[in-house]
Write a protein that binds this DNA or RNA. Structure first.
Lengths: 224, 224, 224, 224
DNA sequence: TATGAATGAGTATTCATTCAT
DNA sequence: TATGAATGAATACTCATTCAT
């Protein structure tokens, strides 16, 4: 029980102070990763930023990558939570998808600094793989909604997985642009635009009406 | 003791053998970049792969990044050529866009190894910027077609730049998936799917008919 | 805020529990030292193995080396005791030497794990020096017996110190081999072999008869 | 062909200058290893001593251990050569063994600095294993001579391997003592002493006469 | 052109030890 | 006694780039 961060999966028991320190390191690391990317952030930078000794880093994290992984996990978890809250389970599929898409964009925008880490520069391939598997979950989730939309007749009857990829890809790219400040408009405008973009791409002739629905203006009770 | 690759813009005059050597290095580098990314490819790896001495690298290229830049330029040039050939200038806007999209995907698929470099891991920010400016050209091109489609009434009247981003993002993501072997289907199927995906996302109510147009099956003469 | 292990020669008064804890640490350390050597055993390893916190180590020992030293002292003490018991003071010199040799080998075999530490890898020179001085005592002891044997006429009249070195070296090497499992035979066989080997190397023409004496088969009372 | 020391077994082609530099590094390393041991010699020390840049070390050697290994190989080779020269193949077994023993001691004394490395402190277990296998060859060689001596009737009929171990161990220990300056006498005296020590330990009653033979004083022609 | 040699700044990680509680 | 947190000096190895021939 001497080396908390030692490479066994078990999380170490940390005192309150310990937890705070760890979070401190995570926060400072996130800031630096966002600013200059993972590869260009030295462990030395992180600890200097946090004002602690170098050795302490390795008390809390097995290595640089482990910290990164933890950051990713946390963020992913928050994002899923946010989406769950944004999606009205009783709404029609197209609306649910739009709600999810818009929530994603808003979340990513809010945590923009964190998300820039995900550009994955300089992270080793193995890790990249594991990150990917996280987004797979997201894709399957989306595909499920799509399948239901197809059953409802509101979404075109095409391969649900491909359609889901289309949705995810669009969201990811707009997020990327926004982060890179290549899109300068109002966030609300962008969110609305992307929402309607994907809805149109998915909708069957009948479903296209749903395009009009703005998840922000109508209370979910009015839907359906 | 001239240094051919020294940082003046002028390309050096190379003997036939010189050109071959240089291309050799470019090819081997491309292969390695594609395999393991820019950051994880050492100059030493490239020369070993090519079977020449380390010093020779710097005879042909100013530095590692210069080689990369050259690789990018070449590829971009080829891609634009290919697109120009694929797009029928007399076709309606939506069709032209679809032609461009499909040509892009096919080109990227063919030069898949090269394109993986563009994930831009570990390239320094300055270079990344320059790469971006290249894709800007592409975006503006697409936006131009879109503006014409809006004028025609076949494309929804929304911000052409945002719509262009939607198109580019979708293409880029599908290319990414394909490269990562996360999509396994027949290339033709994917190409057709993406083509129709973006067309639907762009089309106005009237333009949606264009969805039926398959750029492969109809000779361009029949369009319009 | 007393620091029990602080560098004053005086041993601290430890509670019963304290003594147990200390022994616990010594035991675990011995095991690890034997397994992977002194240099490759971390203080962290020892405390983890013993299931206590890192800080506690320094409550009982001034530092890593102090623990090692203590281990060595203890072992040496036990060994001398064992030898004293094995040697019949009334037996002729050659027999006494053989008794000592055989006792050494048996003792080392029994405490094999401990003895592997003595290979002295990675211990700092100063400590190594102190260890050496311990073995010097042993050498001198042996030389004393040898001198008596020379006086008796049973041992060749050569430099007693050199002869003693010959004895010690042989014993040490066989112990080493045994520990490294490079010798697999029965311990009794090896012990007997080494005993007769050194006796023959020492014996004068007259003394060689003593070779027949097996310290195991003849009760010491019968000797002389 | 760019990284000479790269981890493939193949030795790189080195220019004359390269070979010299490499030898230079080997020599300086040997000196430092001998002075302060392997573990306490930093790569930085070696290159500083040799007056070259740090990176150059890794041009010639894969890592610190690889250099060590090379040093060992070279030394071992020299030693075997020396022994081969010292041993008169036509002499009786006991004499040959004595010749080998004495040659070993003289060689070790001459290359004393090198030999101190072999105390193997801080070398990783895997390497230690490989070193050991080298000494096995030596042991088997010795055992062969012993077997012949047993056939001749000049050496006691005991397990030849155990007898060989006895010989090797004695030599090793005296070498150790000599290196540690714990033996100060004239080298010739020590060599003569050890030679006669092992001969006496090996000799059968009949063979003991051979003890008188001094490999230095009698020309090999007179032997037999 | 072409080679192999040389440079040296840059960085993650380890680990004995000390400290506050 | 006992714990977990904190320290920081120390060190092997990498790799783009330059140089002499």
């Amino acid at each position: 029980m001497a080396t908390p961060a030692a490479g066994n999966g078990e999380a170490r028991r940390l005192t309150r102070q310990g937890k705070e320190r760890k979070q401190q390191l995570l926060d400072h690391a996130a800031g630096l990763f966002a600013e200059r990317g993972y590869a260009d952030t030295r462990v030395a930078d992180i600890v200097r930023d946090a004002g602690v000794a170098k050795g302490l880093f390795y008390w809390y994290f097995e290595n640089k990558e482990a910290l990164f992984r933890e950051l990713v996990e946390t963020t992913r978890h928050r994002m899923r939570q946010m989406q769950a809250e944004a999606i009205d389970p009783d709404a029609p599929a197209l609306v649910r998808i739009r709600q999810g898409v818009e929530a994603s964009l808003r979340f990513m925008s809010e945590w923009r600094r964190l998300y820039s880490m995900f550009d994955l520069d300089g992270v080793d391939p193995e890790l990249a793989q594991s990150l990917r598997s996280g987004s797979d979950v997201h894709t399957l989730d989306t595909a499920r909604h799509i399948r239901e939309g197809i059953a409802e007749g509101t979404i075109r009857d095409e391969d649900p997985l491909l359609l889901a990829y289309g949705v995810i890809g669009t969201v990811a790219y707009f997020n990327h642009l926004h982060r890179m400040a290549r899109i300068d408009g109002d966030l609300d405008d962008v969110v609305r635009f992307v929402g309607s973009f994907v809805v149109r791409a998915l909708a069957s002739g009948d479903g296209i009406a749903a395009d009009a629905l703005s998840t922000k203006t109508l209370p979910s009770a009015a839907l359906g």
